[in-house]
């Protein structure tokens, strides 16, 4: 899939590969090829250093963006998957289990949990496009308990459009399931580390990012509502999503500036979907560093610091009329 604003880049890439084919082994077209490669680099820089918030949302949703499975396979070994909420069923929208970070990332055993958008159409449908049902949140809650029981850090990879607006999700109490996860993370006496790798939609995302550290890839987003929904409610026009995305301040950079997240993780030029390995390595470096840093922390100190972090968050969003 090619995003509208990526079209000039793709055209240049096609022309370059066409010339490479024509040139074969000869050097005759090298000058022209070099010229186009320079133009390509400039175009990438121009487009990708000026993405609007809504364009970033589109990059965050790109089907070729590296997903949970890619990070899991590249950054951990011996993933021991667990399933089910023990109450109703299994939910493929989120996956989790025990894993060990790769030796070069410190080799720590962890509980790894992530939204699984799936790599092909079949998997996407099975995982409801990364939108969990209540059994998904409750499964995640079980994994939080297991992590606490065995003293393992919780590592979360967030990539969800949000909670699911569906009849069954309501019948099975998704609000209750989300609030239980938030309560569990609030008091878990183990390190909680969260990365927003793509979409961070509303309560569905928050159930997996109330954490000691929240890192966001440069083109990921975290928002209380999808820009399209915000536009239809506030502007009564879903077509004004770009405006809503701007107003919501949902980009990684905005959230860092507002003190909501800890770190913006730079993506390769052209976005994570163009150079998946680069993006995964960047997340891996941060993951290894943060887990190592937190693994020695005293459990009670961790919980107290997490409490203070969220208790104070957004102090600047208020004025005290009594002061």
């Amino acid at each position: 899939m090619i995003l509208e604003f990526e079209r000039p880049i793709k055209e240049l890439e096609e022309r370059i590969s066409g010339l490479h084919r024509l040139a074969g082994g000869s050097e005759g077209l090298q000058v022209e090829i070099s010229r186009l490669e320079e133009a390509l680099d400039a175009a990438k820089r121009r487009v990708y250093s000026n993405l609007s918030p809504y364009q970033r949302v589109q990059v965050a949703r790109h089907p070729d963006r590296p997903n949970f499975r890619a990070y899991r396979d590249a950054l951990t070994e011996d993933f021991y998957e667990l399933s089910g909420d023990r109450l109703f069923g299994e939910d493929a929208a989120v996956r989790g289990g025990f894993a060990r970070l790769k030796p070069e990332l410190g080799g720590h055993p962890i509980v790894l949990i992530g939204h699984d958008k799936g790599a092909d159409v079949k998997a996407r449908v099975a995982g409801n496009f990364g939108m969990a049902h209540p059994e998904g949140y409750r499964k995640v809650g079980r994994f939080y308990e297991l992590a606490v029981r065995f003293g393992l850090p919780i590592v979360l990879l967030v990539d969800t459009p949000g909670a699911f607006a569906g009849r069954q999700a309501e019948e099975r109490g998704q609000a209750w399931a989300i609030s239980a996860d938030l309560m569990a993370l609030s008091r878990a006496p183990v390190p909680v580390v969260s990365f927003v790798i793509g979409e961070g939609g509303s309560g569905g995302a928050l159930a997996m990012c109330l954490a000691d550290y929240v890192g966001m890839l440069e083109n990921s987003y975290l928002s209380v509502i999808a820009p399209e929904s915000c536009a239809s409610i506030i502007f009564r026009d879903p077509g004004r999503a770009a405006e809503a995305a701007e107003a919501l301040k949902l980009t990684a950079r905005d959230l860092k500036d507002h003190g909501i997240v800890d770190e913006v993780l730079p993506e390769p030029l052209g976005g994570a979907h163009n150079e998946p390995e680069d993006a995964i390595d960047t997340v891996g470096d941060a993951l290894g560093r943060v887990v190592s840093g937190l693994s020695e922390a005293d459990p009670e100190t961790l919980v107290a610091a997490r409490h203070d972090r969220y208790r104070r968050i957004g102090e600047r969003a208020m004025q005290d009329g009594t002061a």
Binding site: L182, S186, S223, L248, H307, Y310, I313
Partner: peptide, 20 residues
Amino acid sequence: MFEGVYSLMQLAKTSVALSR
């Protein structure tokens, strides 16, 4: 919605207070 992610963070703020 007018407070964007700040409003989302109120879920976290009230949850940490309640957990204590």
